[in-house]
């Protein structure tokens, strides 16, 4: 019995009863340790992969392994795409049906204008070819001459709001190289920024690192196409005194100085000017551009591979 001046707790602590020696790692503590260890190993593994991938994004053993693994996953992606295709086609069919009537009227107007322009351009083109022949005029690569189109499917799409890249099902095996321009039937969409043996990564025009020298077909004004707010495109570095109007068509400018060859040949359609603004505080015109190609729904694209001798 405890003396009156000692509490029960002190009495118990002070008792001479031998207790079993506690394990250094009881089962719960051990599982907590294992859990943290697993997390640490996985996080370190992810960081290691990220570091290696970030330091050598376009070459190295890890790059090759990623390319091979991506090729191995492709059949599964194709299978999933085939399952989803009927549903996607049905959605697009209904979507197209609802817009068809209004689009029809617009397209008829455009067709009328385009027919008249085509006649004039055909005559001008023949005349230009004759003049070039007479003058022995030398010029750089011009789209689509000197290029072979590698038509390929898009196998993956931007996976989040920070990614402006797609993967295509053709790579070095088809002659694709870094900076190969990529187009659709409508116009330019971007360039190849990473090449694997059977696949490649295309950075879209909306990628923050994409800059394309462009020219207004009507006025000859030059500028640089780059990403704007959100997913828009702008024609930057156009002096305020230059004339650019809504509806003007823009094409790639091509190489202007042989010492600094451009990544894109002259003449690839990019888009039309959708609005032009002037601000007192800005150094250049604010020119918004609507891309010809629908960058949000790309199923198949063509990579423009230079042919020999071009």
């Amino acid at each position: 019995m405890a003396p009156p001046n000692r509490s029960a707790r002190v009495e118990v602590l002070g008792s001479s009863v031998q207790r079993s020696r506690s394990n250094a790692y009881p089962s719960r503590s051990r599982s907590a340790l294992v859990r943290r260890l697993v997390l640490a190993v996985l996080v370190l593994g992810a960081l290691a992969l990220l570091t290696v991938s970030f330091r050598s994004p376009t070459a190295g053993a890890l790059h090759d392994v990623q390319g091979a693994a991506s090729s191995a996953l492709r059949p599964f992606q194709i299978a999933a795409d085939r399952v989803a295709r009927p549903f996607r086609d049905a959605y697009r069919w209904f979507d197209g049906l609802t817009k068809a009537k209004s689009q029809n009227a617009v397209l008829r107007d455009e067709l009328r204008t385009a027919r008249a322009q085509a006649l004039a351009y055909r005559a001008a083109a023949v005349k230009a070819q004759n003049l070039e022949r007479l003058l022995n005029y030398e010029q750089g690569a011009t789209y689509p001459n000197g290029f072979r189109a590698v038509n390929t499917a898009v196998i993956s799409f931007p996976s989040g709001p920070f990614t402006k890249q797609i993967a295509i099902a053709a790579g070095a095996n088809k002659g694709i190289k870094l900076n190969t321009p990529v187009v659709t039937g409508d116009g330019l969409i971007g360039r190849v920024t990473n090449v694997f043996s059977k696949t490649a990564v295309v950075s879209l025009l909306t990628d923050p690192d994409s800059y394309v020298a462009a020219r207004d077909l009507k006025t000859g004004v030059r500028g640089v196409i780059r990403h704007g707010q959100g997913n828009t495109l702008i024609l930057d570095q156009v002096p305020k005194q230059a004339t650019v109007k809504k509806g003007d068509r823009l094409v790639t400018d091509g190489t202007r100085d042989a010492r600094y060859p451009d990544l894109y040949p002259y003449g690839i359609p990019i888009g039309t000017v959708s609005s032009v603004g002037i601000q007192d505080t800005a150094s250049y015109l604010q020119v918004q551009v609507a891309s010809f190609a629908d960058l949000g729904s790309l199923d198949s694209v063509a990579a423009l591979v230079k042919t020999k001798g071009s």
Partner: peptide, 16 residues
């Protein structure tokens, strides 16, 4: 791997 993106980036965030 499937998107040919920065290897380890999505893995890091999804692990946590």
């Amino acid at each position: 791997v499937a998107t040919l993106g920065q290897l380890g980036l999505t893995a890091l965030v999804l692990t946590v």
